[in-house]
């Protein structure tokens, strides 16, 4: 077979090159990469991100505008190790966007509570930004963000900015001397919430599987019905196109049917 340089747009497996505009350090192992972008994005969608030769991984878009998008990437393996070596002016390879994302209409004029654990804050960051800029479209808005410790805190500069507009409760599992915020698991703080108008409340829960499981239980205890809880699932994915099968749970393909689900629809499903 001969090689042709035709870059068929019909081939959904091909990526497009995107320049790294800026890099922000979040923690020791997490950096946010701002990339040039002309993708049409929705909150909570993800991209397949790669460097040829080092593999491809699904990564949530942690913020975006018409000109750029941000990816918050933890160093956990061959590809992400390599990405962390990159500098501004270097390129990443992107394809997507994939997944349904959060539909803001579901939260319009509602009390919106977002509970995020660790890197779970990344997929909801763009939604938080939008909500913060459009508070008039919500009845109330609050963010609870839990991290392992002060060292794993993400988006510190954003949180400062957000707090000028709405409540952000920060908590860490393990405290330290310089920590001036709450301590304890996010679930403990969910339990302490006073929800005034439950019928008008929508809750988004995103984070590692155990955090999601127990946070949902706490919201249920507060009386939040399942269909007012929204989740975003993270699974192994190799295509983002509903073909490779890795992300399938029962008859759902997380990459195309998710990653955002109404909890009432997926509470029974099991990996």
């Amino acid at each position: 077979m001969s090689l042709t340089a035709e870059k068929s747009l019909k081939n959904p497996y091909l990526s497009q090159k995107a320049e790294i505009l800026e890099i922000f350090q979040e923690t020791e192992i997490e950096y946010t990469f701002r990339l040039e972008s002309d993708f049409e994005l929705n909150f909570g969608q993800f991209l397949e991100v790669s460097i040829p030769g080092y593999g491809e991984a699904p990564i949530s878009v942690s913020n975006f505008t018409d000109q750029w998008l941000e990816l918050t990437i933890r160093k956990v393996g061959k590809l992400t190790d390599r990405i962390h070596d990159l500098e501004e002016g270097d390129y990443l390879y992107l394809r997507g966007p994939y997944g349904n994302g959060f539909d803001f209409e579901n939260y319009q004029d509602k009390n919106l509570i977002i509970a995020a654990g660790g890197t779970g804050l990344a997929p909801v960051r763009s939604l938080i930004e939008y909500a913060g800029n459009n508070l008039d479209q919500l009845s109330d808005f609050e963010v609870l963000a839990g991290f392992k410790d002060a060292g794993s805190l993400l988006f510190e500069r954003d949180i400062k900015r957000w707090r000028q507009k709405f409540d952000v409760l920060l908590t860490v599992d393990k405290t330290c001397d310089i920590w001036g915020e709450c301590v304890g698991l996010i679930t403990e703080h969910i339990a302490e919430l006073h929800l005034e108008n439950i019928a008008n409340t929508e809750v988004i829960v995103v984070g590692p599987p155990p955090m999601m499981k127990y946070s949902i239980i706490e919201f249920q205890k507060l009386g939040v019905p399942d269909d007012q809880i929204w989740v975003s699932y993270e699974r192994k994915m190799h295509c983002g196109l509903g073909k490779c099968g890795h992300c399938k749970i029962e008859d759902n393909y997380v990459c195309i049917d998710g990653p955002v689900y109404n909890y009432a629809e997926v509470k029974e499903i099991r990996d």
């Binding site: 090689l3 035709e6 990526s15 040829p52 390879y93």
Partner: peptide
């Protein structure tokens, strides 16, 4: 295939 970051699909 890729060479220097350019992608080439086999025809």
């Amino acid at each position: 295939h890729f060479v220097e970051g350019e992608q080439f699909i086999a025809s």
